[in-house]
Simulated assay, not measured.
Amino acid sequence: MPSRSAPAIRIGCAGWSIATRHAVLFDDGGSALARYATRLDVAEINSSFYRPHRPQTYERWAAQVPPHFRFSVKVPKAVTHEARLVRAGDALARFADEVAGLGRKLGGLLVQLPPSLAYEARVANTFFAVLRRRFPRTPVACEPRHPSWYEPRVDALWARHAVARVAADPPRPQDAAVPGGHGRWHYWRWHGSPRIYFSAYDDDRLRALAAALRAHARRGRPVWCIFDNTAHAHAIENALRLKALLREAPPERDDAAPRRSLSRLR
């Protein structure tokens, strides 16, 4: 659970690779993760989606970041894409044992669903009940990508299991553009647009995002924003630029359209 001293808004990236052109933006550290943590306070661990990590690996990562830093961890594709949420208890038990190595620096879990996985009430309720038994107090965010998960009937599922619904860009489907659900946080994942994973975001988009993050932070839940446009290393520059924009005094109305574009990273 977030502490009372936790920042209202956390900005970070999927992974913590630092391109050579961005090295000067970070302070010194004993590893790429340690350097990353000198400027950003959250990272999303995506490699857990593809392969398991030993608890000692998570322990090593936790030891390289300051006390206030947090990780979100992506639930393995063996659970979400291969098992498709069915009979996932054993896999979730192994996953829980592994990520326990993060200790208090485990900030939450990300459940990303395949676009072909339609909502089935029985399957979804069983899965999230099992997940909650393994992680009773850990914030959980779900990124569904089939339109059926955005129907009003799914609201009861999010509320019952305290699950936040991710706000994604590009939104797939369109309803995915705004956060939903009933979890303990609001969670944005920006993947790059128009070219997913490759495109950078300009200042107009980032200013609009900053306004949305401020508005949701005022509602009292922690707000996390993860940039996943890592293919050309734009995630780092977008994350740092967004942090700079959030430090600026907000306009008189957060939803006012930006009047000019500032392209330099400050």
Rank of each mutant, 00 (worst) to 15 (best):
E82P: 00
A141T: 11
L246F: 14
A162L: 05
P139S: 03
Y119A: 03
S261Q: 15
A129D: 14
D90M: 00
A231M: 12
V166W: 02
P251C: 14
Q174T: 07
S263Q: 14
F135W: 04
A215H: 07
F26M: 06
R10I: 09
S31L: 06
R184Y: 00
A91K: 13
W190P: 10
A129Q: 08
A208W: 01
P171N: 06
A121T: 06
D175T: 08
Y58E: 10
F198N: 06
N125H: 13
A100S: 10
Q174L: 11
A93H: 05
C13E: 10
L40C: 04
G192T: 07
N125Y: 06
G107M: 01
P76F: 03
P194Y: 03
A167K: 09
L85V: 01
L92I: 12
G183R: 02
A162F: 00
G12W: 13
V178C: 05
M1D: 15
P66T: 10
V178N: 09
S17E: 10
L106R: 03
H146L: 08
Y187V: 06
H68L: 02
R207N: 06
L85Y: 01
R172F: 12
R219V: 03
R205G: 04
P250K: 14
H182S: 15
S263A: 15
L92C: 04
R122Q: 10
D97P: 01
V99F: 00
G180N: 08
V178W: 03
D255H: 14
L40Y: 10
R214L: 08
F128C: 09
S3Y: 08
A88W: 00
R133Y: 02
R218W: 06
D28P: 10
R51I: 04
L131D: 11
R195Q: 15
W16E: 04
R145F: 00
R4W: 01
G103I: 05
H81Q: 07
G108W: 00
S31C: 07
L213V: 05
L25K: 09
G192Y: 02
D254V: 14
Q174G: 05
A208I: 10
V42D: 05
L113I: 03
W158K: 03
A244W: 15
L109V: 02
R145Q: 02
A177C: 07
G89Q: 10
I11T: 11
D155H: 11
E143A: 05
V140C: 07
A96C: 01
H53L: 11
D27Q: 12
L92M: 08
L117H: 01
D155P: 01
S263H: 14
A14K: 12
F49I: 12
V178I: 04
A231I: 09
W188Q: 05
A62K: 09
A256W: 12
A129C: 05
G89E: 13
Y36R: 04
D228Y: 12
E82K: 00
Y58G: 12
P55W: 00
R153T: 11
V111A: 03
P147D: 06
T38C: 07
R160E: 14
R4Q: 13
C225W: 03
P194A: 12
L33D: 06
A159H: 04
H146F: 01
S5R: 15
A164N: 02
E151H: 09
N125W: 02
H22S: 15
